[in-house]
Amino acid sequence: MSEIYDIGYRHYDGPRLGGGHATRALAVHSLRGIYGLGRTARSKIMPFSLATIMLLPAVVSVAVMAMLGERAMTYSGYAVIMQPIAAIFLASQAPTAVAPDLRHRVLPLYLSRPITVSAYVGAKVAAMTGALFLMLAAPLILMYVGELVIDLDGPPQTKEFLGALSMALVLALLLATFGLALASLTPRRGLGVASVIAVYLLSFASVPLVYTALDMSGYHSAASWAWLMNPFWLVDAVQVWLFDTPPNADGAYPGGPMPAVIVVALIGLALAVLAARYRKAASR
């Protein structure tokens, strides 16, 4: 192979951009990786099929609007109704964003460059949030465009749409930080998938249990707090408080700013876990 060695070495004297550029590039790279872009066809199957399923009710809703002139789905309730799909997406894709770098020890290569541990974690969180937001927001946008084109009776529900869109961002951030924190605890992808889905199922299944138990024992107002054990209903409770939408649960949520405080606290907790996890990984 000596003949292909035999070309002169050229030095690079072009621009060297800073850590900010590298961090953005990492975020875009990770976002593409979550959707399997630039990867094998097999790694595109899961994210794209889930994103398609997520869109189906919106398509049906637009069709119903066109033919019957009625709304089939609300903007504010979309995420709660479709929550298993979003949760499966999170469980299957969050580990692909963090596990390979830990498992194959690529992290030292990043850290020997102008990227810090916090920039690395920030880029991963931004990528996962972006990926989830695309998935949660696309059907809302599709429905809104459909509503404008079909021109139903009465004004378009712009306020509810924008509210749902901003809540989609909050939900995406909450899910992304939690999903990544859980997935980063193990370098094994399979274990990461299992642990995220297990935590979601636990939060999903425990809500009716706790709710019924409290309600039957006569603690009716305390029972409403049970809804906040699941991230989707938790964010819905914030939406009810902020935008005065009808709750997407059987019964009312506890009012006031408490759900929002819990959301912020949970995001903070997940970020702290991520920071601790990566500080440890970096020192190895």
């Binding site: 690079y12 621009p15 590039a25 460059r113």
Partner: peptide, 13 residues
């Protein structure tokens, strides 16, 4: 290519 970008090189470079 990815590692070059992580070192701050623009995409084409």
């Amino acid at each position: 290519v990815h590692m070059a970008r992580m070192s701050g090189l623009p995409r084409t470079a």
